[in-house]
Amino acid sequence: MTKIIEFSGICKDFKIPLKSKGFWGGVKSLFKRQHKIIHALKDVSFSIEEGDIVGYIGPNGAGKSTTIKIMSGILTPTSGDCKIDGFTPWKNRKKYVKNIGVVFGQRSQLWWDVPIKDSFLLLKDIYKIPTEEFNETLALLTKVLNLTDLLDCPLRQLSLGQKMKCELAGALLHKPKILFLDEPTIGLDAVTKLAVRDFIKYINRTWHTTIILTTHDMSDVDALTNKIILIGKGQILYNGSFAEIKHKYGTAKTITVEFAKEYPQVELEGYEVVSHNKNTAVFKTDNKEFNTRDFINHISEKYELVDFSVDMVSVDEILAKLYTEYDI
């Protein structure tokens, strides 16, 4: 596997004017501006291998979008070096961006008042895509994303989900080697979300596109990839497998048991009773050594059970735990 993205020691500072409070503060800042330096990224280094899907996660304001913007050549970092596909993004911008596709979930790259097809044709000109190849790719994207009815509508008439599908297609017309997705599923309904995820997986499989994705929806990451990079307060906190994190933080499970008779005050080592009422009780354990089968066997030998269910900790809870642990 070759490394396609290498980030080494990237720092990015923003200088923002301080606004003073109140009327006199406002008047004062007309004459004298004070500035504050914000360190959006502090010595960020990581590398990503060709053909991978990587989830780039972190709380609001962690520096995710700043990283994406540096990777796509929009921002110049304050210091540090970055090599993507042999280019330094902000130095050879025009050459470099031919090989990448970018989708910012909250923005639009297509033209507002013309039919989608026209926007696509312009992108064909911009990326100098040969007609045959363009038709082939468009046919494929249209099929997979189900765009047939949308191509003749102007962008302004589309719904959010339809728009996102068109944006995705627009970013992929030139078959980029690397695809950056900045919150691609934001605001989408469940069905569209699933369609978008399937599509991302499909593209990764068929074209071996390297995909970097930021999101707040952990089920996106869960569905798409096993590799995550966790960033908080401008620093990389974790870089590795998602399963490992889940294993480390996601051991707690709750078991809800419904008894045939009245709840008999069960005491079991390692299990704590979280709540109970007339004939149901909720048990919880943090220890991964205990397995559910033994627990159920043990309990059903003694009592008559009607039903039981087991719940694992959700991915979002794991993430919340992670955030607290790293204090971000």
Binding site: V97, V102, I126
Partner: peptide, 14 residues
């Protein structure tokens, strides 16, 4: 004003 300008940067154009 709204930041969509970033798309102008990711196109291989002047």
């Amino acid at each position: 004003e709204n930041g969509d300008i970033c798309y102008n940067f990711v196109r291989p154009l002047n």
